[in-house]
């Protein structure tokens, strides 16, 4: 009981501090003359760059599905890797972009994994394997785009599933 009273009393003592923090926060906002921003702004380069990577990946997946004897194509992976490196640098340079930066890294890991799968895979390439990889990469791309579009704040529809 004594412990509860002590805790309650300690909380009461903190109220002026909490109010002071609230007033300071509002004053800081007033001084800044802007609304609270916890995550970065929409970036058109990231949006278009990620969509472009998806388009190129879809083309490769389509080739593998329509012709399962399509050989491993190192050029495809080199191209995707260079595009992802540019996007990673872009995301790293933007303010409050840690989340999208992490997502770009995860997307690169997925392509790295699929590159190894593709290299190991004897032809014909099983269509189910291609479809699985395609689904996973598409899920990641659409997740990044969903967040990116939400960063338009108000201009974008509310978050919803991608399919």
């Amino acid at each position: 009981m004594k412990a509860i009273r002590t805790k309650h009393s300690a909380l009461l003592k903190r109220i002026p501090t909490i109010v002071a923090i609230l007033v300071l926060s509002i004053a800081t906002l007033a001084a800044a003359g802007c609304a609270v921003r916890l995550i970065g702004e929409y970036d058109d380069t990231i949006d278009k760059g990620v969509s472009d990577i998806q388009q190129r990946a879809e083309l490769y997946f389509s080739k593998l599905k329509s012709n399962p004897d399509t050989p491993f194509d190192q050029n495809f992976y080199d191209d995707i890797n260079s595009r992802l490196a540019v996007l990673a640098s872009r995301a790293a340079s933007l303010s409050k972009y840690k989340i999208i930066s992490e997502q770009v890294k995860e997307l690169k890991k997925e392509f790295d994994d699929f590159q190894q799968i593709d290299k190991l895979q004897k032809r014909p390439f099983p269509v189910t394997s291609v479809t699985n990889a395609e689904t996973l990469i598409t899920t990641s791309v659409e997740s990044i785009l969903t967040l990116e579009l939400a960063l338009k704040r108000g201009a974008a529809p509310p978050a919803k599933s991608t399919k």
Partner: peptide
């Protein structure tokens, strides 16, 4: 790959 996709969804 699947773990990375899950992490990307959670990050969103």
């Amino acid at each position: 790959m699947q773990a990375s996709a899950s992490r990307t969804v959670l990050l969103t």
